[in-house]
Design a protein around this nucleic acid. Structure first.
Lengths: 109, 109
DNA sequence: TTAGTTCATCGTAAATATACGATCAATCAA
DNA sequence: TTGATTGATCGTATATTTACGATGAACTAA
């Protein structure tokens, strides 16, 4: 009778925040987001040139970011153009800001 | 000749941000931080009462949070009092805020 | 000393994440 | 049609994460 995550009921906010954080939890994904948010590029091909990792690995990380909703992919044959999803990005900013406002002001320590 | 993370040089900011995000990437750790930041409690024992998980598992998550620097533990025999580490907490807030300011204003999409 | 309390650590099983090369599907150009 | 390019997906090996129960260490109280 193994106890699993499903036995604990998390709020939507806890789940969303954890999912966003998970998407940001690998340095190469931070790097990718930075590049996508920067002025320079939006194409996958450019990412594979800038990041010394196998193309399949980068594609895998892009998938993770897409599933977290942080980026969008737009097909522009034969390439794919990726961009920050501004709406979700704003939501992430709000979630993290709200959460990190808590600073233990109760002061029990 | 497997290529690994060590072949890519990440900035300190990328590494720090990813590490913070990793610490926040599990809903139960979000829950724990919320409880510690709240007015109600700081003791491990209270956490094990409030969270339906094995004591060893909670201890493991506390360790992860401590290693990320987000919390501090203070021995108060026979208990241990955990608190938010305000300094690191502020650093996290700054890092996330700075990073999430990027919103793709380049507008290539 | 003995027993109880509190929490960390160990050992372990199962799930997930991360990396790679190989291959497939879609599109464009010759 | 054929070949080239682009990027997703598959298969797979390894590492890490996550959960548990059992045990150990530190301290208090009887």
């Amino acid at each position: 009778m193994q106890r699993t995550l499903s036995d604990i009921s998390y709020s939507a906010e806890e789940i969303d925040l954890a999912a966003m954080a998970k998407a940001l939890s690998h340095p190469v994904r931070i790097r990718i987001l930075r590049l996508l948010a920067g002025e320079t590029c939006c194409f996958t091909g450019e990412l594979t040139e800038l990041i010394p990792m196998a193309q399949s690995t980068i594609s895998q990380h892009l998938k993770a970011l897409k599933e977290a909703g942080l980026i969008q992919g737009e097909i522009d044959p034969p390439k794919v153009k990726y961009c920050i999803d501004r709406e979700q990005w704003a939501k992430a900013r709000a979630l993290f800001a709200e959460f990190l406002k808590l600073d233990g002001r109760a002061g029990c320590c």
